[in-house]
Each structure stands twice: as structure tokens, then as C-alpha cells.
């Protein structure tokens, strides 16, 4: 009896090893670039989100996964891998197989702002990835509680006190945009970091903080309800959904900060695969459902090529680095 089972054990162990080398059907395989390009898509294409489920990056990823998977003809599971504002997911993607089967939604702030706040080995460089396509941009808007009666930057200047500004966290566009604006406009202020847009906005609604820079999608319901007043947006141009609010640049302060998102693949993914993916995403961008999604979430399409995304983000990082050095702003709080 005992021997039979020992033998069985040996057999199954060998079988295991054989299967291991063949790597059949599992999610652990590896293959060469040419093979990958020929067979693409070979099974499900995983789309990783570096944030928790429910956030705007997650929603965008899930809105795209459906139509893209229809176009590619394979399933596209969306996997949340939250951690370090997406850096964890990015580091994992870097070491993933460059066969187009693993992609992620990457945030501009991770590549263009966070590097200014964290140590070098934790910074994510957009050049370490192949960018498949840009997706959309999301504007930051500076809001204040409507009860304060402030509606312009001059009102803030004349408030006559040190203003507290709520940010959505360290190394975010929210922090950078408000730090820059307060410095450039010479408004005395102190930063109060929160964990994300909702609590920062709540602090303004509850009058615990004077102003907050948050993403437009989050602030819009409160703006429409008249609970908070938008003061400026931080994009280059006025936002299409809020076109009566001036940009910071129009108000005379060179502060241009945006959140943008793109699809990233591991470095070295063959061009054929990238092209095929780009075509699939372009098809998804064309669908009515996705366009409605953009409108519902106040997102501005930025469906540019990967090279353009890299160009946009690298320029932004350089500019932010210059500005923070020039105005002696330390996003990392004294690190």
C-alpha cells in the first residue's frame, strides 16, 4: 500500500516537472519575441490597474477593457495591483514578459510628478515602458467652500490669513499645482495632505481646509450643487466642461498641471504587437459607450500615439523639476 503511493507520488512529481517545462495553460509561461508577435493575442490580455477598485483610473481601465477585448477577440481581465500610487504595478510590468499579454493603465503623475517626491530608485521612468496609446486627461480644479465668498485668486490673496490647502497626497498633481500656485501668487499657505480626492474635498465642504486642488470629476457634483466655488483650473486650456472658469495661466500664473493616463506595455514589446494593440484601443475609443463614459466622467480624450505621450510626460517632468527648484518647493517634505 505504502509503496504504491510512494510510486504514485514519484510519478506525479515527474509529471509536474514535465508540465512545468511545458508551462501549458497556466499564467507563468515564457516565449521568444518572434513567437509572441506571430501568436498575439495568445490567450487573455491582462490589464493591470495600479490603484484600488472604484477610483477613476480603475473605472477608465474597466471601461476600455470591454470594447478592446471585443476587438482583439480574447478576454481582457482587469487586475487591481494597488501600491505606492501605481509604482508597484509599474515595477511588476517592467519585469513582465514583453509579449503584449500584460498591459497597465499608467498615470502621468506617477511618471512626471512622483519622481520629484520620492527617492530615485522608487521613481518610475516612462522611458522604461512602451506606451501603446494615450487615453484621456483629467483637469485639476482649485475649489473653496462657497460660504467663503471667494471666487478669484485675488480673493485668496486678500483673505488676510494663512490659507490651508488640502491636497490629495504627497507627489500628486494636486500637491504640485497648489504648491506652485501659492508660491507664484505669494499667498501664505500651508499644505494639509489627505488620502485621495474625496477626503480632501470633504475637508473643504466641512470648512476644515480653505481650498483644495482636486480632479474635476470629483468636484463637479459639488460645483453644480453650488457647495464649492471653482477658482481656477490648472490645464493649458479651459476645460470643456467648465468653460467659464479661467485657467491659472490666464490668471497670470504659469502653473500647468494635469492628470493624464496611458496604456503601457513592457519595454521591448514587438512593434507589430504594439500596432495591433493601438488599433484595438482606437476602435474602443470610437465606440459610443466609451465616449459617453468620457462625457459622464468629465474626461478629455487624449488618444495620441505612444511616442507623443512619452514626449508630453518627459517635457512635463523636466518643467516641474525646473519650477520646483526655482521656487524652492520640496514635494517630499524635507527628504
Amino acid at each position: 500500500m505504502t509503496t504504491t503511493f510512494r510510486r504514485l507520488g514519484a510519478v506525479s512529481a515527474t509529471a509536474g516537472l514535465v508540465l512545468l517545462t511545458a508551462a501549458c495553460g497556466g499564467n507563468l509561461g515564457s516565449k521568444s519575441a518572434e513567437e509572441a508577435a506571430e501568436n498575439f493575442p495568445d490567450g487573455p490580455v491582462t490589464l493591470t490597474i495600479g490603484q484600488d477598485p472604484g477610483g477613476s483610473t480603475d473605472l477608465i481601465g474597466r471601461a476600455l477593457a470591454g470594447p478592446v477585448s471585443d476587438d482583439l477577440g480574447v478576454s481582457m481581465p482587469v487586475v487591481n495591483r494597488p501600491g505606492a500610487n501605481g509604482a508597484l504595478a509599474a515595477k511588476e510590468l517592467e519585469s513582465a514578459e514583453a509579449d503584449g499579454q500584460s498591459l497597465m493603465v499608467i498615470n502621468m503623475s506617477l511618471a512626471a510628478i512622483t519622481p520629484l517626491a520620492v527617492s530615485e530608485d522608487q521613481a518610475v521612468d516612462v522611458n522604461d515602458f512602451e506606451i501603446v496609446t494615450g487615453i484621456s486627461t483629467d483637469d485639476y480644479v482649485l475649489v473653496t467652500n462657497a460660504d467663503n465668498g471667494w471666487s478669484t485668486i485675488d480673493d485668496l490673496k486678500n483673505a488676510g490669513k494663512t490659507l490651508s490647502y488640502a491636497t490629495t497626497g504627497v507627489g500628486t498633481g494636486s500637491q504640485l499645482s497648489s504648491e506652485l500656485l501659492f508660491k507664484l501668487a505669494e499667498i501664505p499657505g500651508k499644505a494639509v495632505p489627505f488620502d485621495g480626492g474625496a477626503p480632501a474635498l470633504t475637508a473643504v465642504l466641512g470648512n476644515q481646509a480653505d481650498v483644495a486642488s482636486v480632479q474635476l470629476g470629483e468636484a463637479m457634483p459639488q460645483i453644480e450643487a453650488g457647495k464649492v466655488t471653482p477658482i481656477v483650473t490648472f490645464a493649458k486650456e479651459r476645460n470643456q466642461y467648465l468653460d467659464d472658469v479661467p485657467t491659472a495661466v490666464e490668471s497670470g500664473y504659469e502653473v500647468e498641471v494635469q492628470q493624464a493616463r496611458a496604456i503601457a506595455a513592457p519595454k521591448g514589446t514587438p512593434q507589430e504587437i504594439l500596432d495591433e494593440l493601438k488599433a484595438a484601443f482606437d476602435a474602443a475609443f470610437e465606440t459610443q459607450a466609451y465616449q459617453d463614459f468620457n462625457t459622464d466622467n468629465l474626461l478629455t480624450p487624449n488618444e495620441v500615439s505612444g511616442d507623443e505621450v512619452v514626449e508630453q510626460w518627459t517635457t512635463a517632468l523636466d518643467r516641474y523639476r525646473e519650477l520646483t527648484e526655482e521656487y524652492d518647493i520640496d514635494l517630499g517634505g524635507g527628504q
Binding site: 494597488p82 501600491g83 505606492a84 509604482a87 508597484l88 515595477k91 517626491a117 520620492v118 527617492s119 522608487q122 497626497g169 504627497v170 507627489g171 495632505p193 488620502d195 514635494l331 517630499g332 517634505g333 524635507g334 527628504q335
Partner: peptide, 20 residues
């Protein structure tokens, strides 16, 4: 984890998995 106020890494022993 990473301190939400200063960005300093606290007791993470340089592990990215612990930053959050």
C-alpha cells in the same frame, strides 16, 4: 509604509511592497 505627509519611507526596509 510611505508617510502620507512627507513621503518618507518608514520601516519599509527598502521594500516597494511595503510602501503602502
Amino acid at each position: 509604509g510611505r508617510d502620507g505627509f512627507t513621503g518618507a519611507e518608514r520601516f519599509t526596509f527598502d521594500s516597494l511592497a511595503l510602501t503602502d
